[in-house]
């Protein structure tokens, strides 16, 4: 698996750029990923989503899907698309250092 340097820290990612160890995530890494995908710098609303995702994943043992984020994070679907364009579920997970949400097989 490739290792990438974000904010001076080397972390392992899969070939879609998702962190392999969500423990190695830091706020600085989130900013660096956000910059890389072109959504940085992160705003307060981004952080509201990221914090929800990390907490929910810790409680549930899996990253939340898009519908769950829009229902429980306090940020609605329309806004999620503005904050994390194209695939908010995937992008929010990636910036939050979580695996790609499965939801769907």
């Amino acid at each position: 698996m490739p290792a990438i340097e974000y904010a001076g820290t080397s972390v392992e990612v899969n070939d879609e750029g998702f962190l392999l160890q969500s423990d190695s995530w830091t706020r600085e890494i989130a900013e660096a990923i956000a910059a890389e995908v072109g959504i940085g710098p992160l705003t307060e609303k981004h952080w509201q989503v990221i914090e929800f995702c990390r907490q929910d994943a810790a409680e549930q043992g899996q990253p939340p899907g898009l519908r769950r984020i829009s229902k429980l994070s306090g940020i609605n679907m329309k806004e999620l698309y503005q904050l994390f364009p194209k695939g908010p579920g995937k992008l929010a997970a990636r910036v939050s250092g979580l695996p790609k949400p499965q939801g769907c097989i």
Binding site: L66, G103, C104, I105
Partner: peptide, 8 residues
Amino acid sequence: VEMPIKCP
């Protein structure tokens, strides 16, 4: 529309 669905 959205996942998951039956028999994807």
